[in-house]
Structure formats: C-alpha cells, structure tokens
Design a protein around this nucleic acid. Structure first.
Lengths: 337, 337
DNA sequence: CGTGATTTTGCACACCTATGCAAGCCTCGG
DNA sequence: CCGAGGCTTGCATAGGTGTGCAAAATCACG
C-alpha cells in the first residue's frame, strides 16, 4: 500500500506552497489561478485532506456523538437513521455510543470521557433512560448538547420534544368524546419527562372535562410492566386505556385480546403515543398521537449546529405538535366519523 | 475554556520526559517507579491522551465504519446496538454511515471516501441493499471488511450470515410434514445473496421431498411488494407461504387476515425468517427461522478485529445455524406437537 | 509612472503524540 | 572488581494540516 498523498505532494506538483494547498481546501482566500492549479494537481494525485490532522489543529472533528440506549423501541432507529442522513449531508458524522442496561454513574463517566477523547463537536442525547448526570457532565465539558425526545426542566439545556402535554390532552378529549366511562392510563416511565408530561397533560384535561382517571399505572416503557399495569386497570373495570407509547400499547393490545379474551375496541379502547410505522399495521391499527420524527430531528440538528457554529447561540426548548391519528383501536366519537 | 492538558504538562509535573508519559499510556515498557509518578501526575492534572494525535501518528483510529441502509427492518437496529456495545467494550467505536434510498455509484463513492477520510480501521457492511461496488472499493482501499448478513460469492471478502440455505430447507421440511398441498414462496429480494440462498434451500428441499412450489414471487423485502406477491400466490390457491423475512411476513399476515378475510393458520400457514422480537408478539405469533443475532454479531466483530490486528489473517466465510421456532402462524405437524 | 491600498503567497510554527536511536543505568556472572 | 547484556530513559523527529505574520504581487487611481 503506497503512502498517503499529502498536501506537500500536491504543492510540489502544482508549483505552489503547502499553505496554498491548505487554503484552497479549507475555503480560505486564493486566486483563481492557483486554485485551479491546486485542484488539478490534487485531482491528478487523488489527494484528500487528512481529516485527523485537520481536526487536531482546528479542534473541531465534525463528528457528533449520539447516545442511545433503547433501540428496541422502533421510534429510535427511525430517528437515528434520519439523524445520520441529515448530519452526513451537513458534512458531519455520527459516532454512536450505547449505554449499558443498568447504566450507573461509572458508565456515564466513561461514555463522557470517550466522547471528550474523540473531541466530538456536539452531542445528541436520544435516550429517555439516562439520568441528569450525563447531560450535566457534557455541559460542563463545554460541548453543545441537545436532548432529543427528552426534557429536563431548568437545566438550561437545549431540548426537542413533541408537545407531550398537549398530546396527552388530545387523548383525554378524544376518549371523553367517545363516551368512555372508566378511563385508565398505562403511563410512560415517570422517571422521564416525556412520560410525566404525557401523563400530566392527560390527567389535567380529564379533570378539566369534569371526569377523572380510574387508575394510573407506570408501565416504565417495558413490555412486562405494561402487561402487569393492564391487569390492574382492567380489574378496575376500565373500558379505555391511554398507553404511554406505542411499543407498550402493542403489548397491552395483545394481552387484552389474546390473554384476557377482550375485544379491542369493542370492550376496551386503546390509544398509544408515537405513531411508529407498526402502528399502521392492520393487526394493531392503533389510534395514536404522532410524534413528527422528521421535524423533531431537523429541529435537533439545526439547534445543535447553531450552538456549534455560534457559541453565543443559546439553548432553546422546542416542542413540536403532532396530530392524533384516528385508526381502529379506539371507539371513534360520533362527531368525528 | 482552559487549554487541554498535554503529555508535556504531565511530564513536567512528574519530572520525566514526554516520551516517558507516552510510553506509560501506550503500554510500552516503563519502570514501576516512573509509571507511578506519571500516573499520579496525570491523575492530578486530569490528563487524557489525545486520540486524534495518536491516530494521526499510528495510523489507526480505533473507529469502525458501519454502513446501514434498512433500519426499518427491526433486525438491523438490534444488530447495530449489539455491535456498538461489543465494539465499545473492545475499545473501538462505531461511525455510522447511511446509504441514501436509491444509492447509485456516486453515493457509494462518496461513502467510501468519507470512510477513508476518517481512516476507519475496519468496515462492517450491514446492508443487503448495496451493490458489490462498495465492498470492492473498500477492499481496494486496503481496509478490512466484513459483510454482515450478506454474502458475495467468490469475492474473497469475509462474511457472516446465518445458514440461509439450511434455514430454507428446514421450512420446506416443516411445511411438507404439515401436509400442505399447495406451497408458495414470497421470496426475499433476489438481488441479495440472503434472499437467493433462502429461496434455493427452500425450493431444492421441496424437490428432494418429491414436491414443488406452486409459485415464487419476489417480495423485494418491501411491504407493498409482499402484498402484491401474496395476492398472486393466493390466487394460485396456496395453503402455505414461506416469506423471505419476518418484516414481510407481518405484511403478508395482515393482508391475508384483514384484506382477504383468510384465517392464519386455518386457511393459510405462514412462516417467516429472522425471528425479530415482534415475531413473538401474540398478534402475529409467527413461526420463523431464528437468526442468532448475538452470535452473528460476535463472529463479525471477531473476524474483523482479527483482520485488523493480524493482516495475514484471511477473510473467512461464517455461517451460523439457527433453529426453526414453532409458533402459531403455521399448522404444526402431528409428530412435532 | 508612482504611490498607497489590497490581495496573494510563502515561511515557519503549532497541534500532540509515538517511536527509532543512542546513551545511561542496573544486574549478574566470572 | 570488571565487562557484557538487558532494561530505562531522553532526544529528536515524524505524522499532515491550519494560520499569523511579513514580504511580494496586484490593483486602483491620480
């Protein structure tokens, strides 16, 4: 394997200095003439600037660290794919960091260190599961951070979520309009802001509408927990369940239909949150609140790059509204048919 | 933001030379005494070696490029998560590259260039969709490559797949044993080796058993295509369908049940391939051939690291056998009950 | 054509670490 | 006590690029 061709080689061939080559490739000023000569020589030699050397000296790697922990929920792979694609188009790349199952502070520290080691220009935290520790440490290290699908009140960190409270409220309106008598809630993990917000919005709106939830059980975004929660709520006689995300909603529907022998939506209406692709599958045909992944991802990237390119740009909180998608898993009010 | 702590700072504080510091952190020989002094100083200053500078000089980045294109199929996120985790444990990291939808040669070239730019130590191609061009170019660039869940006959490239032919054969055995009279096949994309192999193994074994497929339609790993294929095969009177992967199988089952009003497995048996988590959901309860993701991932990483650390190690082809998982989407032969 | 303003260019250094080489140290056997 | 051999250590350089600075070249204009 022959040696890499360097900017010096190009300079020699083009009859200019190495700095001229550097300037041409880093977009600095250069005369039409030399730029042409340099490009020709580079083309002939197959020269490409060495990213490592460049990063070493500029201090910017054009790499974004992305922390994920929960790819089992199809919402996240979808987001990851979009992130990777957009960042690629912007000349950035995505370095993936996976948080171990029961992530303790030790793990968190290690991840942060590794990101610092690689001098990532920015960080996307796309995981509901991780504590505030990670975000705090990133911030302390002076690296721009955006929380994706996760909020953290008063942290001063940039964050992009869907309008979770409003979404929860929409479901409340919908179920009440559907004349459901006993409404229950399999909540998203109450340790996460998204989970809490959806729950709050839902419960508050119920009260505003003059009714109340028969029961609320934390499903912790977990299959088995969701089933357990369902049992409790059904025992209380619920005829409608708002489930904290689609992934749990599938488990709930399966349990209702195949273990408890109930009809959905005949006996029980089920509403989810996310609108992952599978929600449209006929087997579930899940009524759910859509999280507009595309717009959320775009907003996240924009916010992050703004922070990177203009350090004075400050972290803002973005909430993106998504519609309730009416399908067949919940009784549809007369007025909406 | 204060300047980074460098090995020179540590050297000064420890009263040794910079090279001593370097040697301690790169695992070269050093006396107990100096090692201790260096570590103490490093600890006190919060020193961490600069990965970029190190990579620049050693030529190894400890970064693995991972090319994906099809995260819609839940098989791949699962794999990606495992890859990231294992590589992390081995001191490597995962740089994700996403191939655009209709990836032409231009895109392929760009991706390869970007990987070269970042001097990735190795490449995992985890995408059925991409042509041979990408693999060839990577190989030409002298970077170790392993194809994951994708083969390429006679390419001389390392590859890890499940035993696709054998898997297809198992399904043939199973369906014949179940006394199915008219067996059809919604094939995986015939442009991919996995698709072809499964199909071959399936059809060959049918013949060996003295029967034959009523029809074979390419589902191209696509939802809509799978539905189209199903229509054709059902029109031919099939009472059993082997579907090229689980993701399509879900579409097929939904179509059979909710559009055509057929019972699964009452009227038609359906068997998939992959055993993604969703296959175990009660709504589908899909009989399918398991791809042992964990072992496939482990084999891929092992093979790749071997090639990286020992350039003489040559590419081998690994096939990992997986069992047929019996569930409720296909009639179970008397003998197996 | 001369002068000042402006752009272009080259020089040299910085970024931070790994490593070949030679010199220094220690150890051990005779 | 001496010499040989092995382990440590420091020196100096390489790896490839960006950038401040000053010199050179170009331009505009009177």
């Amino acid at each position: 394997m022959s040696r890499r061709v360097t900017s010096l080689d190009v300079a020699a061939r083009a009859g200019v200095s190495q700095s001229a080559v550097s300037r041409v490739f880093s977009g600095a000023s250069a005369s039409k003439d030399t730029a042409a000569k340099v490009r020709a020589a580079a083309e002939a030699l197959g020269y490409r600037p060495n990213v490592l050397a460049r990063s070493l000296i500029t201090g910017r790697s054009r790499i974004i660290g992305m922390v994920v922990a929960y790819l089992g929920n199809p919402f996240y792979p979808d987001a990851l794919e979009r992130f990777s694609r957009i960042l690629q188009d912007e000349g950035y790349h995505t370095l993936v960091f996976t948080l171990p199952e029961g992530a303790g502070d030790t793990d968190t520290d290690r991840i942060v260190q590794q990101m610092l080691d690689h001098q990532v220009d920015g960080i996307i935290l796309a995981s509901v599961g991780l504590g505030d520790a990670l975000a705090a440490r990133c911030e302390a290290a002076g690296i721009p951070v955006v929380l994706f699908n996760r909020g953290q009140a008063g942290s001063g960190l940039a964050q992009v979520t869907s309008a979770n409270r409003l979404g929860g409220a929409k479901v409340a309106e919908f179920l009440v309009a559907g004349n459901h008598a006993r409404i229950g809630h399999v909540a998203g993990w109450q340790g996460s802001s998204t989970g809490r917000d959806r729950t709050e919005g839902f419960l508050d709106r119920l009260v505003a509408l003059g009714t109340e939830a028969v029961g609320v059980e934390d499903g912790r975004y977990d299959h088995a927990e969701a089933v357990r929660a369902t049992d409790i709520l059904i025992a209380k006689g619920c005829d409608a369940l708002f489930v904290g995300n689609d992934h749990m909603a599938f488990a709930v529907m399966d349990h209702l239909r195949f273990d408890l022998g109930l009809s959905v939506p005949g006996d029980v209406s089920v509403v989810g949150y996310d609108d992952v692709p599978m929600a449209a599958f006929a087997a579930y045909d899940l009524t759910t609140v859509r999280q507009p992944v595309g717009r959320m991802v775009k907003a996240t990237v924009t916010g992050l790059l703004d922070q990177i390119e203009d350090t004075s740009a400050r972290a803002d909180i973005t909430e993106i509204d998504g519609p309730l998608i009416l399908r067949g898993s919940a009784r549809i009010p007369e007025g909406l048919k």
